[in-house]
Amino acid sequence: MRALVTIGACYLDTILTVDHYPGEDEKLRASSISRRRGGNTLNSLEVLQQLLDCGPKNVEARAESMPIYVTSVLPAISSPAIREIEASLGSKIDLQHCIYREGASEPASSYIFKSMSTGTRTIVNYNELPEMTVSEFVQIAETLPTVLPRWFHFEGRIPDVTLQCIKYIRQRFPTDKVSVEVEKPGREGLQELAAVADVAFYSKSWAQKHGYQTPQDFLLSQSPLTPEASILCCTWGEQGAACLCKSKMEYIRSPAYTDAQHPVVDTIGAGDTFIAGILYGLIYRENDFTLQRTVDFANRLAGYKVTREGFEGLGAAMEGYF
Rank of each mutant, 00 (worst) to 15 (best):
L163C: 06
M249I: 09
K92W: 01
L52G: 07
K305V: 01
N287K: 14
C10Q: 02
S135V: 12
E181M: 03
R37F: 06
A302G: 05
P107S: 07
T14K: 08
A276I: 06
A276M: 08
I268E: 03
A3G: 13
M66H: 12
L4W: 04
E64S: 15
T133N: 14
R253E: 14
F322H: 10
I278A: 07
I123A: 11
E142C: 11
E183G: 05
G310Y: 10
W236A: 07
F297C: 06
I158T: 12
L193F: 01
G320P: 14
R293K: 15
D176E: 11
N40Q: 11
G269Y: 03
P149C: 11
S221G: 08
E102T: 09
E309W: 09
G103Q: 13
G189V: 03
Q96S: 15
L291R: 07
E128N: 12
K248I: 07
A141T: 04
R308C: 15
D19Q: 15
L48K: 07
E106P: 00
R170N: 10
C98T: 08
L129E: 00
Q171G: 13
W236N: 05
D25Q: 10
F154R: 00
G103V: 03
R253P: 00
V264M: 14
L220I: 10
T14G: 05
N58G: 07
S115L: 09
N40R: 07
S31P: 07
E26W: 06
D198C: 05
Q239T: 11
A270H: 08
K92E: 02
I33R: 15
D296E: 14
S78M: 08
A200H: 00
T294L: 07
N43H: 06
I231K: 00
L232F: 03
F218Y: 10
P56V: 09
P185D: 06
R150I: 04
H20Y: 11
R253Y: 15
L48T: 04
D266K: 13
S221V: 03
P224F: 14
K305P: 01
G315I: 09
L193W: 00
T307E: 11
T133S: 15
D160E: 12
